[in-house]
Design a protein around this nucleic acid. Sequence first.
DNA 1: TAAGTTTGTAACCATGTGGTCACATATTTT
DNA 2: AAAATATGTGACCACATGGTTACAAACTTA
Lengths: 189, 189
Amino acid sequence: MKKDRAATKEKIYESFLSLLEEKGPQAVGINAIAKKAGVSKELIYRYYGGLEGLLLHLAKKGDFFKSMLSLQDREINSTEDLKDFAKAGTQELRKNKLTQEILRWQLLENNEATRDLFKYSNKEMAKMFAISDKDTSLNHAFQLMIGGYIYFTLLSKFNKKFITTDLSSQESWDKFDKAIEKTIDLFNK
Amino acid sequence: MKKDRAATKEKIYESFLSLLEEKGPQAVGINAIAKKAGVSKELIYRYYGGLEGLLLHLAKKGDFFKSMLSLQDREINSTEDLKDFAKAGTQELRKNKLTQEILRWQLLENNEATRDLFKYSNKEMAKMFAISDKDTSLNHAFQLMIGGYIYFTLLSKFNKKFITTDLSSQESWDKFDKAIEKTIDLFNK
DNA sequence: TAAGTTTGTAACCATGTGGTCACATATTTT
DNA sequence: AAAATATGTGACCACATGGTTACAAACTTA
């Protein structure tokens, strides 16, 4: 049998990530990760210090936001910039399943183990929002709509519809985007 | 020992409700309910047909929306009416922990057992939204903001803040309400 | 080659889960 | 009063959970 610590350590981490991404926070457990990685769970404790350490590792690497980091570089000078920024953000969120599951996780618990992960996650979110976070009257309306976008995105995993809105059709998401755009315009007139 | 089927049946249901309300969907299990009710779990199967039947019972009774039903009677003729309706709805949501936990549940799973409960829940939500669901340009913006309100409400259970917004202060929620009002106004000008 | 260390496994533990069972004790019916 | 039925209990089952332990196999050092 071949032995390669670095490789198995990585294998564990990857299994953890894909498990979270595919099946959500509830499915993430020591046994499940070990099984998926095809490895003894003892190694998870030895190499990461259990699930807690695994979460910490994720927090520090912060993979889940890497695709969103590009948005931070933007300069927001006009309402058009803000609209573009919002649109890019919502699109990115809809693509990034890992981010979605971490956001979902924040709705479920907040304990010793998850605290650092969420702290980091929130810090990244704050960086992004800093761009639009002038204390204008638009501020809270904007936050509400982004929150709504997050909500509907998470909801769409298990629900096809919200009221009359079909969450599985691209058209609906386009309408949401347009609604945000229009609201930004109205507030800036 | 005294025996009273109706009473113990009720005791089971109440334990189930308070458990859901206090500790959320994850804490709701046969063992936990039986323990809280101080009764053998066998009776849960015998009287309700297990957790599934218990959920069905909740769906049919629909207690969780009873406090919101009053909102349905309103007539929405002016933008002022719509604003009042929105405000009443958000306030009601923030008070009603049971509704919150059912909405949280919808973000976690959707299976054989929960399907009926969610179906009913959505029907009730739809009734309420029917009032404001003219297909105006405001429609999606309004949905987004209500969605955001739900999101922040659920988030506030475990998180004190979203970005810079303090979810534990009444002031923040007032600002959210004002943002909704203002958006309605802007769309109707 | 021999000894020591690292990497890995499988068995085990205590606990918790949903679910079923045989049985005991009330309460009704005959 | 006796028999039948309804109500309730605790033990039990198979399985899954997180966590630990003892040991084997590979690799490193001496």
